[in-house]
Design a protein around this nucleic acid. Structure first.
Lengths: 206, 206
DNA sequence: GTTTGTGAAACGATTCACAGCT
DNA sequence: AGCTGTGAATCGTTTCACAAAC
């Protein structure tokens, strides 16, 4: 596997979405320029991104839409489904559990945990919210591929440690903290207040 | 104003958070190394980031915590509060409206819009959900500094166009589309499914 | 002795430009 | 003629390393 920049991976995900749209419209081939204009980048960037993984196009013609989509699914590891655990049953957790985009893209939430006794035992989208103290028991019975962390800031690192101990290798973290994990665990942190602050900076710096 | 990379701005936001923690603990000065270890970067990176905006430290000593925090608030445009409009009253919108982190950091949601008649007129956190068709009327009465877009994909671009027409210069977009806006409008897109796909790639590429 | 501030060096990503295939 | 694939050039960011300040 070539090592590529995260920015490249993100663009590949975008290209896949556009290809799926083109596929739905019955378009058979697409040029790097067409993909680029759809995704706010350049044709050279598209070709370079793809070239890290192979030559998927035909010179003079472009790329075959269904085949390229399939290759991108393979590259991105999207030819399988993923079992996802949600840690935290607050407002954001609730929104994410009901968010169709996850299931559509192959991510199935199969367990929800919280420490709040008023929430434990309730049903969300057909799933019973489990006591966080049963994390080890439940995730041993039903292993997960990824965890989505939506706990308060102070709970995030201890829970992350337990997830790592359970062998979880990928965490999507919504808690506004910088998690410390071993090198073989991937963490992607989404910090919503921080996104607003980059907008605030952009408004202020003009 | 110097033009700096977005990555730099994001780190400055993180530094500010750490400084506020240090402030709460009564720590008076902090070295670039201490800030760096807290934020998963290097001392040289911290010093370079700050050096774009001035010299805030004392050689041999470090940086004065409250003063540096204040400077960062000034740089990031966080010495004022922002009026934010939420466009879309779905699951994610609901979570964001109730998310304390926004208000804590100076972002006040002052209006919510939706097109669903079953939602229009309901109260969320003391705010009445308005009909999206009244967007122009309401935002002329009550102007906003930023908009948070949490509409379905197909509604996002038309709504963005209307916001731009109303003079909105900053949009935080949660719809999974690439918005087209004039150069003087800043858009930050958060694509949740895409974040999971970068994790999927990371798991697959090993 | 410690730590900042900053040019210079190293590194990484994007863009250019063109040969080669259809 | 049209478009890909890719080495080379460019551009931007991070890291190094050290003189200057405390």
């Amino acid at each position: 596997m070539p090592k590529v920049a995260e920015s490249t991976v993100r663009r590949l995900s975008l290209y896949l979405r556009f290809l799926e749209e083109f596929e739905g419209q019955g378009i058979a081939t697409v040029s790097s320029g067409a993909l680029a204009s759809r995704g706010g980048t350049t044709s050279a960037q598209v070709r370079k991104d793809l070239s890290f993984f192979g030559s998927f196009g035909k010179r003079g013609l472009g790329y075959p839409v269904p085949e390229l989509a399939d290759q991108l699914r393979e590259i991105l590891g999207l030819k399988r489904r993923y079992r996802v655990g949600m840690i935290g049953a607050g407002k954001i957790g609730s929104a994410l559990v009901q968010y169709r985009g996850f299931r559509q893209r192959g991510f199935d939430i199969i367990a929800i945990f919280d420490s709040d006794t008023s929430k434990i035992g309730r049903q969300w989208n057909g799933l019973t919210i489990c006591d966080i103290s049963a994390l080890e028991r439940e995730l041993t019975k039903q292993p997960i591929d990824m965890a989505v962390l939506v706990t308060p800031a102070e709970a995030a690192q201890p829970v992350a440690d337990r997830l790592v101990g359970l062998g979880v290798k990928a965490i999507l973290n919504f808690a506004p903290v910088q998690l410390v994990v071993p090198d073989d665990v991937v963490v992607k942190t989404v910090n919503l207040a921080l996104e607003l602050e980059t907008l605030s900076y952009a408004l202020a710096s003009r």
